[in-house]
Design a protein around this nucleic acid. Structure first.
Lengths: 226, 226
DNA sequence: GAGCAATTCCGACGAATGGCGAAACCGGAC
DNA sequence: GTCCGGTTTCGCCATTCGTCGGAATTGCTC
């Protein structure tokens, strides 16, 4: 909306080189934009919390700490108003469609040229959904998955956090410690998650989440010793 | 070893048409072979239990009830001596390598011609590992995964069954009912599984198992390509 | 036969899990 | 302002989970 004064754009990617390339592309496409770079999800949320909501976030799907769609899911839950363009090396149609389902306004393959980047950025800033040509967003979606995606969307930010930790195999107690809240609170969130995902146990919740997010959901903690 | 009298071959595939095609290919490649067909894992285990161990099993990875590598894992645990050739439409190198790691002696893409099938069958009957040309079995394997594969191999047949049910989100009580044993027994198996997989909870065990088997462990193939 | 591993079961214990109702705080929407 | 939803917390309770020690059975190998 407020493009004239200074459009604030945040680039979230763990690869410094690619961040630089993105920044250059953004600058070219949008003169006078206020571009910041972050290398992790934590840094991204911090940037959004402190500096006020950005006008656009360019988000890499695979970042340290969160892989798969959890990063997008989390960002969407935490800052529903911020437009997001997903930037990923994986440009399979199913992935692209999933990103849009999870609330991204655009998808940019890492192979895209400056031309396309500018096109995508301008489109999304105007509120339009942009995907690479040839992507059919209305392609038949497996009903089961669609239901799960809808269920996942109803989760609150904190619940998304808890679900991610459940998916790392953490105990309620550990989650409570990590989030700095009491175990009772974690239980409340877990109960809410189970209800919303329509499952009966934390294990089933993890299975359901893994089914959506693909294999690379969690990276840290318990699985380190496997 | 006992090829001359009557080589016993079992074809396990849920698609009758493809079973027929396989049977024909086998007959052509190996005259006088005793070929049986089964359409499910249960039928396969029953055939192996009643009719005595076969000389070769042609196993489709995706069968009703068990998908992903669990079928292979289960078969290997139940009948370690029976040579197995995995037959699958998915011919990605990573999948092929994983099959061999789990003890299959061969891998046959569904696109293979009669020529190749015969070659593979003869090779495996002689105890040689056969894969499609161009597959490097010594490709660098991520150490974490390798450890897990080794751990999974130490599971007993019943434990594999239990782990599969854990991965479906079943309670100990439900598993006990399904297997026709007491809950105490299931607990004993779960404890053994946790020890062998070096994890602390059933949830972590499920996460670990899912990480190995890829996504196609449970019911639907969410992200066949990653 | 002895030894061994897998499978089966038991009882009991403590910890973890999950549901219930209730309450308080806070930020945004009407 | 009030209302609503998200977050936080509590206590209580039943169930489930996982461990420990012990034990009987089968089938295999040496």
């Amino acid at each position: 909306m407020k493009r004239q004064p200074s459009t604030r754009i945040v680039i979230a990617d763990d690869h410094p080189l690619f961040r630089g390339a993105l920044r250059q592309a953004v600058s070219t496409a949008l003169e006078g934009a206020d571009v910041s770079e972050v290398g992790s999800l934590e840094a991204l949320t911090e940037a959004l919390d402190t500096g006020g909501d950005a006008d656009l976030v360019l988000l890499d799907l695979t970042m340290p700490g969160v892989q798969g769609f959890s990063g997008l899911l989390f960002l969407r839950a935490d800052h529903p108003e911020v437009p997001v363009i997903v930037v990923s090396a994986n440009d399979e149609p199913s992935v692209i469609r999933r990103c849009i389902e999870f609330g991204a306004l655009g998808f940019l393959p890492k192979t895209a040229d400056v031309e396309q980047m500018g096109e995508a950025i301008r489109a999304v800033l105007e509120g339009t959904v942009w995907t690479p040509p040839g992507i059919d967003l209305n392609a038949p979606v497996d009903a089961e998955t669609a239901t799960m995606v809808r269920n996942l969307s109803t989760l609150t930010p904190q619940q998304v956090r808890v679900l991610m930790m459940l998916s790392e195999g953490l105990l309620n107690k550990q989650i409570a410690y990590e989030l700095g809240v009491s175990e009772a609170t974690v239980k409340a969130h877990v109960s809410a998650i189970l209800t919303k995902l329509d499952v009966d146990s934390r294990t089933q919740a993890v299975i359901a989440a893994a089914k959506i997010a693909g294999t690379a959901w969690a990276t840290t903690g318990a699985s380190a010793t496997l």
